[in-house]
Design a binder for these strands. Structure first.
Length: 273
DNA sequence: AGCTGGTCCTGATGGC
DNA sequence: TGCCATCAGGACCAGC
């Protein structure tokens, strides 16, 4: 489910629902996500006010006065506020209870994470999980020159380079394929062998792709739903993802599916070079 | 059985 | 030989 647009969709929903509200209780049901959910969250959070709801890459950052709750949704996570929550289900691992409803973390595959970072508001970039992240795709400093410089000497494929998140954050498997198609770049090409002009195009393609996906509420492949309980619909706008055998909308070529680093990649051999 | 949205960690490799 | 950066693969897990 969650690449940057989905996480941003979740963030916006949460911000509208819990910003400025005070945590009343916390219920931890499954301590074993990627790492254990801190067992003492139920003592730390109650009484604290949600002062900010931010996002860094695919991480959600809930600012709560003396610290920050860092949440990652992994492959299958979601964090949604419900005014009238249903009884918790099998994969509802965490409830953050407010007077007016409950923010509930659901994550069947448990690749997600919930961590408490005991630092006051402001930057939490010193956290080891955040320190190595690339820049935000919507930041001013993100452009083709940045990608060009970061990729010099790299023999790994450009798709792998994007997924690594060291140059730019938030581009996951779906949007890597989509952005590369939009930029006309073949995903298998070595990152270090791509010139500045093409990286300018790629940077713009990444921005445009992610921006459109956010507007559409993200991509729903199986079960992702946004804050309002409905799925996103960017999957309807995908140009190559999941479309092997179909015709490319730009050149009419036949879209192909290959596997890179054990992840599927889709591209059009006709217009991606 | 083999896929599926992520990313940390370990061990291998290669250049200096 | 040792150090560094990079790269490849395994690991985590449930559902379809």
């Amino acid at each position: 489910m969650p690449e940057l647009p989905e996480v941003e969709t979740v963030r916006r929903g949460l911000e509208g629902a819990i910003l400025g509200r005070t945590v009343r209780a916390v219920v931890v049901r499954a301590p074993a996500l990627r790492w254990p959910i801190p067992a003492d969250l139920d003592r730390i959070l109650p009484g604290l006010e949600v002062a900010s709801v931010r996002r860094r890459g695919k991480y959600l950052l809930l600012g709560l006065a003396p610290g920050t709750l860092i949440v990652h949704l992994g492959m299958s996570g979601n964090l949604v506020f419900r005014r009238e929550p249903t009884p918790p289900g099998r994969h509802d691992h965490l409830d953050i209870v407010f007077d007016h409803g409950v923010a509930r973390l659901n994550d069947p595959r448990r690749f997600g994470a919930v961590l408490w970072h005991p630092r006051a508001l402001g930057p939490v970039e010193d956290h080891p999980l955040l320190a190595g992240l690339g820049i935000e795709p919507f930041a001013e400093e993100f452009d083709g020159r940045h990608l060009y410089r970061a990729s010099r000497g790299r023999i790994a494929s450009v798709k792998q380079f994007l997924l690594a998140g060291e140059a730019v954050v938030g581009v996951g498997n779906i949007y890597a394929s989509e952005s590369l198609h939009r930029a006309g770049i073949r995903p298998t090409r070595a990152a270090g062998a791509i010139g500045l002009a093409r990286y300018e195009r790629l940077a713009e393609a990444i921005r445009a792709t992610l921006g459109e996906a956010i507007e559409m509420g993200g991509t729903t492949l199986r079960d992702f739903e946004g804050p309002d309980g409905v799925g996103g619909y960017f999957q309807l706008a995908c140009r190559v993802y999941g479309r092997d055998g179909l015709a490319c909308g730009r050149c009419g070529g036949t879209i192909r599916r290959i596997v890179q680093q054990q992840r599927a990649t889709w591209f059009c051999p006709g217009c991606q070079r």
